[in-house]
Design a protein around this nucleic acid. Structure first.
Lengths: 244, 244
DNA sequence: TTATTTGATTTGTGATCACACTTGCATTGA
DNA sequence: TCAATGCAAGTGTGATCACAAATCAAATAA
């Protein structure tokens, strides 16, 4: 039995990491996930299996299964016509998403605040520096990098909460609010907003002192900001559209 | 265009509900879901695509897509061998699930407590009567009916919370805790537990008076009970296994 | 000109097949 | 007798095909 041999006695095998097969479906799924969280798809945009398969240079099979998975986590929406689209933005849905995120991510950060070790804290602390860099050369607004960095910061914390149940739920929530957030970040950027990392500093400070309550409060403020910003924007547009 | 005609002017069509095509995959998915929530599969049991396809009298295609969806909501687990199984029960996972359920279902019932109308309250009130019936002829312990009724009661409340985001999450949580709960209910039944609806009466009373806090507290007690019961059972078994 | 119909194209769904990997069992060797 | 090797059955994955439903466009009728 090769396996047991490798595990027990082979000095070379001990240094080898398992290679792990990655299926095409997994790659398609990850790619679509990344695109959704990053807001690369617009709300209400319809997606076709064959179209995505062509774009991703694969057959329809992995795509349809990945789409099915994304539909079950409400990252995409199945229309009665059997076509699928990214869910449209409505005020009700935004409020709903924000409330859920405050509830669940707030709980996760409160748990993490008492569980993060100094190494993990150093990691998120170093991320603050990257925002300072970006702010220093803010003439070149790099929304993609901002989105990626923001995601890395938050999930570094959430991973430390130690809950295998909450983390997938948070991922699902980010998937659902991705298309909204992207719109909000662009709006921020246009509005000349620069210090997007203000609450992040508060969060790091609170976690460093294991102050769960302050960490939660700062997080709530952090994730509420783009939502309320976008909400005001949509309401203003609705009013203008109504009077026109 | 027939559709527009039907929508606008046809007085008969206005009374007709859309029939909605149901795909084979949807039926397979619903069936597996029902089986999982009901605890028909044992923890750690491995499932094969072809096996399920034969049992459900269909081809492998709808089954594999349904399995993929269930894996993304953590109702099933993908092993590195690419085989899938229902996740095993561990103490950590049970605590994790219970915490998440208290958090999210507690929020949902608190919202519902202030939003349910008299008709909805009457519905859950009438369900209490069914438990009384079951208790009256408790010699015939019908675990299936108990599980179904319990699910109907809770989700009648959750649906009233008005959150399209929280409800799917609760469904996912029930899917994940289904295999545990079934074990606990059997244990209850063996232990001669009869009044499984005690907290449900408190819940109905609290909702009728729009007391969100008491509703939440009663719900927490209700869903905690099988978990702590099962936890004690597992710990006792672990201790016995250790000493043996 | 406008509304309706008809036909062609596109799209999702399910079945089937080919391939690669895993698992279990029997055979072979020491 | 026991472990290792090799073979065979089983399983998941991805591609392709057939079919039905939906969509879109051109043609026709009012």
């Amino acid at each position: 039995m090769q396996k047991a041999t490798a595990e027990k006695s082979d000095p070379i095998a001990a240094q080898l990491a398992p290679v792990g097969r990655e299926t095409v479906q997994d790659r398609v799924y990850s790619e679509l996930r990344r695109a959704l969280i990053g807001g690369l798809f617009e709300p209400s945009q319809v997606l076709t299996i064959r179209g995505l398969a062509d774009a991703l240079m694969t057959s329809t099979m992995p795509v349809r299964e990945a789409l099915g998975r994304l539909i079950t986590e409400k990252a995409l929406e199945a229309l009665p016509n059997r076509s699928v689209r990214v869910p449209p933005i409505t005020l009700e849905r935004m409020d709903d998403l924000l409330r859920a995120r405050i509830l669940i991510e707030g709980e996760a950060i409160a748990l993490a605040a008492t569980r993060m070790n100094s190494r993990q804290i150093a990691t998120i602390e170093s991320m603050l520096g990257e925002w300072d860099e970006m702010r220093a050369l803010k003439h070149k607004k790099d929304v993609d990098r901002e989105v990626t960095l923001n995601q890395a910061f938050h999930f570094e914390i959430y991973r430390a909460c130690g809950s295998a149940v909450l983390i997938p739920m948070i991922e699902s929530l980010w998937l659902q609010s991705g298309p909204c957030i992207r719109v909000a970040i662009y709006a921020f950027s246009d509005a000349g907003e620069v210090d997007t990392a203000h609450y992040h500093r508060t969060i790091v400070k609170a976690i460093a002192t294991q102050d769960a309550k302050e960490a939660r409060d700062a997080l709530v403020a952090d994730i509420s900001r783009p939502f309320t910003f976008l909400r005001n924007k949509l309401e203003a547009e609705a009013k203008k559209g109504l009077s026109a």
